[in-house]
């Protein structure tokens, strides 16, 4: 928080402000188990207990202002150890949702806007996406044991649809190969959609439930379109 030395009249806070949140944060006994289990504890003075406590006391301005909710990776270790069953990641998302959208951290905000418009966080056109996938497939086909390997894009009625993390078609194309080789070796009947293939859901990470749903629905639409029953969403 910015100014820890300011004195606050505790009884002037509205402690019931976040009572309707379904995260049981009010039952916190400040034991600190969450803080000792959190891999992000200590970053920028963050620890989960502080946020839970501030929400319980109703410190609205402070929890919106602080970077702490954005330091959290939503990994959920805190929730695993909480003796009072406080759902901390869900609470953190709720805090994130209270920020003005253009005040969410830069890359997340821009990426989500782009994804809503174009179908993926990079704004990568369909032709470019197909080109990159086929290029990677050709490289695999040159390796012994993978002769004739092809990437099955938009294969109707496949057994498995897999989403793609945008970084795998941007800076980490090598990582696509590991997945694909496993599918090949396992004889999996798989496919990848040429549109709305983005597996990363920055609506989820920014606490934007509405856009999270849009991104999720788009994946379900592809399953319907390609008549695939199983989804692999490696995110």
């Amino acid at each position: 928080m910015n100014d820890m030395n300011t004195t606050i009249d505790l009884s002037a806070l509205d402690h019931d402000r976040f009572k309707s949140w379904p995260n049981d944060q009010d039952y916190c006994v400040t034991c600190g188990l969450c803080s000792s289990d959190c891999p992000a504890s200590g970053i920028d003075d963050f620890d989960p207990r502080k946020l839970v406590r501030m929400v319980g006391l109703g410190m609205k301005d402070e929890i919106i202002e602080t970077r702490w909710s954005w330091v959290c990776t939503l990994c959920g270790k805190c929730q695993n150890v909480c003796p009072m069953g406080v759902q901390i990641p869900s609470m953190v998302r709720q805090i994130r949702s209270m920020r003005d959208r253009d005040a969410t951290p830069g890359i997340l905000h821009k990426g989500l806007e782009t994804a809503i418009q174009s179908g993926n966080n990079l704004g990568l056109p369909r032709e470019d996406f197909i080109f990159i996938l086929e290029d990677v497939a050709e490289e695999i086909a040159e390796e012994p044991g993978f002769e004739g390997f092809k990437v099955p894009i938009d294969k109707q009625g496949a057994g498995l649809l897999t989403t793609i993390h945008n970084k795998l078609v941007n800076t980490h194309t090598e990582d696509l190969k590991h997945w694909w080789k496993i599918f090949h070796a396992a004889g999996e009947d798989w496919t990848v959609s040429s549109i709305n293939w983005e597996g990363t859901n920055w609506g989820y990470f920014t606490g934007d439930d509405e856009r999270m749903k849009i991104m999720t629905e788009r994946i379900v639409e592809q399953m319907d379109r390609l008549e695939v029953k199983n989804l692999l969403w490696p995110e």
Binding site: M1, M4, N5, T6, T7, I8, D9, L10, S11, T30, G32, R49, K50, R53, M54, L57, M59
Partner: peptide
């Protein structure tokens, strides 16, 4: 009553 909340480090007062 004044105290520092040990969980958050915030200085609180109560009357």
């Amino acid at each position: 009553v004044s105290f520092t909340d040990e969980a958050t480090g915030v200085l609180f007062t109560l009357t």
